[in-house]
Amino acid sequence: MTHSSTLTLPATISNLERFLELVSKCALTCGMDKKRVTEIEIATEEALVNIIQHAYRGEKGEIEVECDIKKDTLSIKIIDYGPPFNILTLQDPDVNATLEERKIGGLGVFFMKKLMDGVDYKREGNKNILILTAYKDRTTEFDS
């Protein structure tokens, strides 16, 4: 089974839901269970919010989200046209720090890495392309 859908919208927080609806529909089509669908939505939200808040530095811009389903694998391609920026170079937060030491923020990119089976970045022409990959049959410790 191969299936692909694309949505391009202005990079604003009000469009977050429409992007997440597309991603959750694709994850369901791929046969993911409810928990996995939510995890994929969370990872996608983190990528989108990062673009909305930082990529265009207050200027208007667009985000393109493309979902590709191939057999048991969902790939979510998230494209922006901001300056080159590989978010995967950001340092992971210290999740062992005490409450007093914990820094506010920095969890978003970490969530993407932990919740997805793969996160890849490439720069192509004027595009930042982030690819989130999720396999249908991944199991996590907290399955319920």
């Binding site: 928990k35 939510t38 999740v95 062992n96 970490f110 969530f111 932990k114 907290f142």
Partner: peptide, 13 residues
């Protein structure tokens, strides 16, 4: 906490 909420609490320490 359950499901994905428990999962992100775990991931975040």
């Amino acid at each position: 906490l359950k499901g994905p909420v428990a999962e992100v609490f775990k991931i975040s320490g």
